[in-house]
Design a protein around this nucleic acid. Structure first.
Lengths: 219, 219
DNA sequence: CTAGCCCCAATAATCGATTATTCGATAGTC
DNA sequence: GACTATCGAATAATCGATTATTGGGGCTAG
């Protein structure tokens, strides 16, 4: 069995990029805050060059805002933008799911079941970082065989944006239970190859999730 | 009248980013080629730090591929990817155009007419860099009031990817005439607020353009 | 008072030099 | 003869120091 070997040894720049991306999505930085580069330098114990390269990448990715001669800022959280992101997620993930259901093979079915199962088990163990990781992975697995690299790329980007809002929202156990049930339902519909119904369900899933996330704004 | 003032004085990093982006889209680099950083340093007469920052941004944007410890490469041109990009462009620009037609105001109508007119005039003067610039601008104006920042962002990104292919394709005057006529037709349908027909036409427009671009592959 | 200006501390951007890694050529081994 | 190990030049990544720009506080003139 050969290991995928990640991708060569990691460079400092890439390491700090991954860390910052996680931290930004998890809301470890105040929205709207100016990024104090030298503070980050200490906090993560890295040099200026790799740090600035990571910040540049994050700005191009949309998790930071870069202003010439004025450094970097964390984007504000605006109701208007959450609507935008959620609306696009519905369009794009719906589209991707339909295509995935057309194109996905038997191996995909297996991975889907596995991902859903792992997610449910992490749920029992208490919703934490592990659950978040597996949740992202589940949604990624759902749309993975859609056949479009660019669609997957955009979906991932929107997912990160969306999660900035969602992770700040207060717990909503009743809605959460519905959302969790929908995960299983999505798997069922995918296995049955019912693209139309799956798309509709995904649409509803994201919409409910959006309503939860809304509660986190200005809180 | 106040000038928009671009955005503060440009930083070396941003300048070189803009230049490289143009050059990459225009095919001034061999597809698949490894980017020789020190060669670029001389060619554009810039320092290493701003250059690397620009390259990092371009990689995050999708116009370069970054491999840890192995620098940057220009992405290959693959039929498979052109299909992907074109197909997504049709979906997203169609969606954006429909929304723009719902939301666009009178000022938009004026700018649309102006953009179309400028484009036609540049056409007479011979299709060159200026025409390319105005063509991008026309398409951007069409979808501008769609109301979604992220949709516009993705569309621009796909446009850049698409143009990498299109600009390598040989001239196709007959198709070109049809495509030009479609520009005016798009304006007409937009002014008439016929979202459905406009979307359909945009779909056809991109598809024909795709067929032209196809001829440029492996040429 | 207040608008405008100037200066200085903070910090963003860039440079030049250094360190780490890769890639290809060559030599050695089975 | 094919495979692996090793070495060195080429080049990617990073560091430390320098330069340029901003933003705010106090001063001055109206």
């Amino acid at each position: 069995m050969e290991l995928p070997e990640r991708q060569g040894r990691m460079t400092t720049s890439s390491r700090i990029y991954d860390i910052l991306r996680q931290d930004l999505v998890n809301g470890r930085f105040e929205a709207g805050e100016k990024v104090a580069i030298s503070a980050l330098r200490e906090r993560y114990d890295v040099g200026l060059s790799p740090l600035r390269e990571a910040l540049n990448r994050l700005a191009a990715y949309g998790l930071l805002i870069q202003e010439n001669q004025r450094g970097f800022r964390v984007p504000r959280l605006e109701r208007r933008e959450l609507e935008d992101v959620a609306s696009l997620r519905r369009e794009l993930e719906g589209m991707a799911l339909e295509r995935a259901i057309l194109l996905g093979d038997a191996e995909w079915e297996s991975e889907l079941l596995a991902a859903a199962h792992r997610l449910k088990r992490a749920d029992m163990a208490g919703r934490g970082e592990e659950w978040e990781r597996l949740h992202v992975r589940f949604h990624r697995t759902l749309v993975a065989p859609c056949g479009s690299i660019w669609l997957l790329r955009f979906i991932e980007q929107l997912h990160d944006q969306f999660d900035r809002y969602r992770r700040l929202a207060p717990e909503a156990p009743e809605v959460r239970r519905v959302l969790d049930a929908q995960h299983d339902e999505l798997v069922r519909l995918a296995l049955e190859r019912d693209g139309g119904a799956a798309r509709q369900l995904m649409d509803d899933h994201i919409h409910r999730s959006y309503e939860v996330a809304l509660c986190g704004i200005k809180a």
